[in-house]
Each structure stands twice: as structure tokens, then as C-alpha cells.
Simulated assay, not measured.
Amino acid sequence: MLVCVTVLAIVGVSVAARASRVLVPAVVGLPQPDAINRLQKAGLVVEDGGTLFSNDVPRNHVISQEPAAGSTVERGTSVRIVLSAGAETFAMPDVIGRSADEASRELSELGLTVSTQVVESQLASGTVLESFPAPGAEVRAGTPVRLSIAGQPVSPSEIAQYSFVGATVFLDPVPRGTTPDVTYEVARRIRALIEASGGTVVVSRSPSATSTALADRVAAARAATATVAVVLDVASSGQSGLALSLDPSKTGPSATVSSSIASATAQALSAAGLASRDAGRFRDPILSVVSCPGIRVLLGSLADPADVARFGDPDWADTVARAVYRGLGVGLGRGPR
């Protein structure tokens, strides 16, 4: 009888021991919430193993686990899981046109650090107008991203500080094949400011016509009968940064007004925190064929990585455009509206 009791006790202990042990489920490749749920259902404790970059495993999915799947462990054992931080670098998503909340949520889930700024726009409030870095740029987790968000529509008097009624401004954004098309982006912003101030703007080319021949742009300049001309260009090499220059063909009153515009533009840039230099005289093929005053604005150098980075910054382009606008207003003597 004693023997039977002993045997039963041993069997009971063995069964209880087996009942306290569990198989570790496979959670590699699962999203974090699913992996936690599966491990907890198996009676195991989840331990945070941190994150690693991975080009193969999506962000917030399990890269590895320890103990391995199929191991037999005591119930309550900790299973350490390592999550994917996503690819170390990836293309900036295109969120332009999306709502600010939706875009911010998507970018934050990718590990990007999102900030927003409200800009003047007639589009629906809360719409993403631009992003910096631009769509397609190479980014990584932690990269700061700034979204320009449409604000409430504003009246022309709030946008414009000078009256350009009766004035025609000719803009020549020199095609240089940059991405984005920085000379045209600045020209587009100047155009919006001038037109909001009652002026007429003629642009030498469209944004898609980056191969526009110089002869066509010269013909457009001659036909414009402009009040003032502004050439926007970038250098392929040489000194970096913003620079302003005058055409030596300008003499008399035209030279005086051109100099006033350049000086006022430099002051506006400085007030906005952007340094510029005087590039002296430069024989420009556009400015030399028009009789009106004009200036050449060099936006930077393609040989300088810092300049190239700024070319993709919509906030920088806005600041430059507003400085040129104010320079034109002051230099031409266009009184406040």
C-alpha cells in the first residue's frame, strides 16, 4: 500500500512539473502587439530588448527572440524580444495634399520627428502644402521633418505691403536642372506676392521647361516691356551663399534704381537673418537687353552642400522671395498699400 502511494506521489509531482513548463511560441516577424499577446497567452513575461535597424523586417515588428521558439521553459519565464527600427535610411514619403494630422501620424510612425508651420494659403485649412525634406529625399529614424500647413485664407492687404498696381515685373528663373527647381520655386513665390499687390508678372519659362533656350528667354524679356527685371540663378562652382549683382549696361536713372533695389533687398535679407554679399557687376544676357532697372540674385552654389540643402527648404525660399519683394517695393518707391 505504501509503495502505491509513493508511486502516485511521484507521478503527481512529475505531472505538476510538466504542467509548469511551456513551449515558447514563435513571434519573430510579428507586429509588437501581436507578439506580446501571444507570449502572454503562453504564460510568459515579455522583456524589452530594444530596437535594431533592419532592411528586411518592418518597423515595430520582432527581429529576434530569446529563448528561441520551441524551447521548453518554466511558466513565467521572461522572453526578450528585439524590435525593428525600420531601414536605417528610406525615402521621405509624399504627404503633400494630405491632412496635417494624417501626415504627422504617418511620419511619426516611421520614427521621423515632425514639426509644423502654418503658412498663408487659399487651400483648405490643415492641408499639407510642402515638406522639408522634400518627398523622395533620403531620411532615417529621428530625422527632423517640417510640414508647411495651410492656414486660414488671408486678405490681400495682409499679404502685400507695397502697391505694384500698374507695374510689370519680369522674372527670369535661370534653368539649372536642380531638384527641386530652386530658381523657379523662388520666382513662383515672388510672383504670388507681386500679384497679390496688384502687379503684373511675366516669367521667362514654365516649371517644366527646364531646357528653355536662352534665346527664347531673351525674346520673352524684350516682349515684356517690364517696369523691372529680376534674374534668379545658381552658380555651378565658386563662392557660396546669396549674392546680388548689377548689370554694367544700366546707366543713369536705371542704374540708380537698380542699385536701390539691390541695397533694399540686401537689407531685407539681413533683417530676416540671411547674409548676402555684393557680387559687383555682372553682364547678364537678360538684364543687358531690357531698358528697365533690374538685379541678379545668385541663390547659392551647387558646389556647396549647405547651399544645396537650403535649395530644398520651402521656408528658406519663402524668406528669399519676401526679401526680393520688399527690395522691389522700396527700390521702386512703391508706397505701402
Rank of each mutant, 00 (worst) to 15 (best):
S204C: 07
D304M: 15
E158I: 05
E66W: 12
T210S: 03
A141W: 09
A103G: 11
S240F: 02
G199L: 10
D307M: 04
V95E: 03
G198R: 13
V5S: 08
S270F: 10
A306W: 15
G199K: 06
L242A: 00
S288P: 08
L39F: 07
A266Q: 10
S115H: 14
G43C: 04
V201P: 08
A16C: 09
A16R: 12
S301P: 08
A223F: 05
A303S: 12
A167S: 12
A321K: 07
A124R: 11
G29A: 05
R283I: 08
G142W: 14
E130P: 05
D94E: 13
I96Q: 05
L287W: 03
P25V: 09
L232G: 06
L8Q: 13
A35R: 07
G142T: 08
R75D: 00
L30A: 14
G111R: 12
S163K: 11
G294T: 00
V95R: 09
T143W: 05
S237V: 02
V297T: 04
E109R: 15
S270D: 14
A235M: 04
L23P: 09
S20W: 12
A266T: 15
A103N: 03
G126N: 02
L107Q: 05
G142D: 05
Y162T: 15
S288Q: 11
V297M: 01
Y184W: 09
V114C: 05
A235R: 09
G327C: 01
P285A: 06
S288F: 06
H61S: 04
F164W: 12
A103M: 07
C4H: 15
S131N: 06
A303C: 00
R146W: 14
V27Q: 03
S54L: 09
L299D: 00
A262R: 03
G86V: 05
